[in-house]
């Protein structure tokens, strides 16, 4: 959210997070029955699970399990996300630029859009089975729509004046596309890519809960079956941290590629 204003000292901002931590520690000291521990694991138990998952080498993988699961999730995210960019950006440019594509392709894209990525999970499972392809497909589908929508908007939002000026100075179609429309649409496309990455994260967790035997989503789902709430919490933390890092990465990409653009 927005930056703190004058009234807000750092101390005041830390009150609630610290209070929540104190509450957690306090409750876990008071509620020591096994059933309560299952609902609210004490901090040291979560720390223990984190150490176990992140530091102990798994006999099967030869690596700490948390790293293996995180690596699998990231690999699937990267594949699905890059595929989404590779398809959505050219398609969005075509729809935004050519009337024919707008008339005959755009409405099909818009018709698919309301079917959320998670609703595709059962069909993807039937098509691709339990495994990486299912997850990659769901990520692809989830990331696709924000990117295509923003690409269309970006291309359409390109100032007519620039395009006319380019036409008047004898620019060909392809050159206009590359030198005028793409740079003008790039900030909007990047915003769509950032939103798409967020949806991709949501989708990958949902897909891994049911559609794989590895990955962070699988980790928390499996830990839940074993009533191992400590590992669930560790997995959630890993998902949150990687989500923040990937969003930061996109923000960095925005500052590099479109430094002139103000950002939220």
């Amino acid at each position: 959210m927005a930056r703190p204003r004058q009234a807000a000292t750092l101390g005041w901002r830390l009150v609630l997070p610290l209070a929540l931590v104190v509450l957690w520690v306090g409750l876990s000291q008071v509620l020591t029955s096994p059933s309560a521990k299952m609902m609210l694991p004490p901090p040291e138990a979560v720390g223990g699970a984190a150490a176990q998952l992140a530091l102990t080498v798994h006999p099967l993988f030869g690596m700490p399990p948390l790293l293996v699961h995180a690596a699998h999730s990231l690999e699937r995210l990267a594949l699905g996300y890059l595929a989404a960019i590779a398809v959505a950006v050219p398609l969005g440019i075509a729809i935004g630029y050519f009337r024919g594509a707008d008339t005959y392709v755009n409405f099909l894209v818009q018709a698919m859009r309301p079917i959320s990525p998670v609703a595709w999970i059962p069909l993807a499972l039937a098509w691709f089975g339990v495994g990486i392809t299912t997850v990659v497909f769901i990520v692809f589908y989830g990331a696709f729509f924000p990117i295509v929508a923003n690409t269309i908007a970006g291309v359409r939002g390109t100032s007519r004046t620039y395009v006319r000026a380019a036409v008047a100075s004898g620019c060909g179609q392809l050159r206009i596309l590359r030198r005028i429309i793409l740079p003008a649409a790039l900030p909007t496309i990047l915003t769509g890519m950032r939103v798409g990455l967020g949806v991709g994260w949501m989708s990958i967790v949902a897909a891994e809960l049911v559609g794989t035997q590895s990955g962070l989503g699988y980790l928390i789902s499996e830990a839940r079956f074993h009533l191992d709430i400590e590992s669930v919490v560790v997995g959630m933390l890993a998902i949150g941290v990687l989500g923040v890092l990937s969003d930061r990465g996109m923000r960095w990409l925005q500052t590099v590629l479109v430094p002139w653009q103000p950002r939220a």
């Binding site: 959210m1 927005a2 901002r13 609630l16 997070p17 929540l20 809960l209 789902s221 949150g240």
Partner: peptide, 20 residues
């Protein structure tokens, strides 16, 4: 100022990750 840190810490976690 009272809630923004907490919201910013919880927000990156997709709701799906809360399912288990």
């Amino acid at each position: 100022a009272f809630v923004d840190l907490t919201i910013e810490m919880l927000r990156p976690l997709p709701a799906m990750a809360w399912i288990p």
